[in-house]
Design a protein around this nucleic acid. Structure first.
Lengths: 213, 213
DNA sequence: CGTAATGTTGACAAGGGTCAAGCTTAGTGG
DNA sequence: CCACTAAGCTTGACCCTTGTCAACATTACG
């Protein structure tokens, strides 16, 4: 509580109403959801925040084979619905019957426009990473890692890895031996070419993408 | 880019300087870090944001037995250092030689004070959850889950679980069978008492805490 | 060129997943 | 109010993926 950046205890109710209703010019909508009903789905416009009056909510994603990773549970008093783009990337569903207030998105102040999106981007990456480490096999994790690095370096096929195998292992929740074996198998199958240990040429990005589904 | 909430491509440099220097009344400090040197550590005051000029950074935590979970890598152009409390909860270290600009914390506008902390809290939870699912065994994950639920319900020893075993498994990256076996083992060892399948009495919270380190 | 750090590969073991059976609880209809 | 059913949960047996331990190879650096 001391810091201007501190966050209240879990019991503290956030005064979203006081904060946002001014902007929307109107109080929040309160909606009732039955158990196992959808609140939003990937692709839906992310133009609101949600605060739970009562009940509980799960946030999750699905792999195409049906494996599911829940990235968060939310209970009464908590706020969810943040996204880093204009569309949702996750499912939100009521676990039990819920009362949920929805608030139109906050104002376009400079901090909201610039700083908050950075935090939200980090949050989305964290959530996606949870999907990788929570539900994917060793080779799927390494494939996802290579694709992530490729994208973050502009999509060029020659990817530079500034980090060690130990770092990669710790990032993916694997041992260095398992990471190394995955690299070797991708090399043997022609998916990648190891220019050197820290430079990878991605030869079959689609094959890697197919692994991650 | 279309949405007022959209986030630029990874290549886009965030104009932190233009945004924050006004507040600090001064431009950013540029610091040089050698490879494998600490930028901040758990317990350090979190009163700045950092933007990477060149090089790469790892964000991680340690379990007491030395297992490490890296929750993020950051490369040139990216911003890190967000925390939900006044102190850092993670290590930040240079992977290679780095040039890093540090910016004093942003202004206390209403959105920054209220909305950003919510996002940051979610981010920190995500990062801590990565530690759990990336590096902990099945029983450690379930112990961490029970403790998290206990804390989020005010620390009472009778914890209500609104979610199914399937949900818990998906949250922890485990199958329902493994979750169930962990509950059973905790029951047999007297750490918990299962009042019913959805209500747990935490009898030895310290024993559970010891498991998570 | 020599040494230490980093990475690769192999053999083996174990933790957790898969498959299957049975149990418990909650909800429904007679 | 009880019986029936379906969903959720528990337990067991087996097996596979990945971790562990070890040896060796390669790279980086002084």
């Amino acid at each position: 509580m001391a810091s201007h950046f501190a966050f209240g205890s879990p019991a503290t109710r956030i005064d979203l109403d006081g904060m946002l209703s001014q902007q929307a010019g109107r109080g929040a909508q309160v909606t009732h959801y039955n158990a196992n009903t959808e609140i939003y789905a990937p692709g839906d416009r992310a133009n609101a925040l949600y605060q739970i009056d009562f009940g509980a909510v799960r946030i999750y994603r699905l792999l195409s084979d049906g494996r599911r990773q829940i990235s968060a549970f939310h209970v009464a008093g908590e706020v969810f619905g943040f996204e880093a783009s204009e569309k949702h990337g996750f499912f939100a569903e009521a676990i039990a019957a819920c009362g949920i207030r929805s608030y139109r998105m906050p104002p376009e102040e400079r901090v909201a426009r610039e700083l908050l999106p950075i935090a939200l981007q980090a949050l989305v990456r964290a959530q996606e990473h949870m999907l990788v480490i929570g539900r994917q096999s060793a080779s799927e994790r390494v494939a996802a890692f290579l694709l992530e690095m490729m994208e973050r370096q502009g999509g060029l096929d020659h990817v530079d890895l500034p980090m060690s195998r130990t770092d990669i292992g710790d990032y993916l929740g694997l041992t260095i031996e398992t990471v190394s074996r995955a690299f070797s198998r991708f090399r043997e199958s022609g998916h990648i070419h190891l220019v050197n240990t820290r430079t990878v040429e991605i030869r079959k990005p689609d094959a890697l993408r197919a692994m991650c589904e």
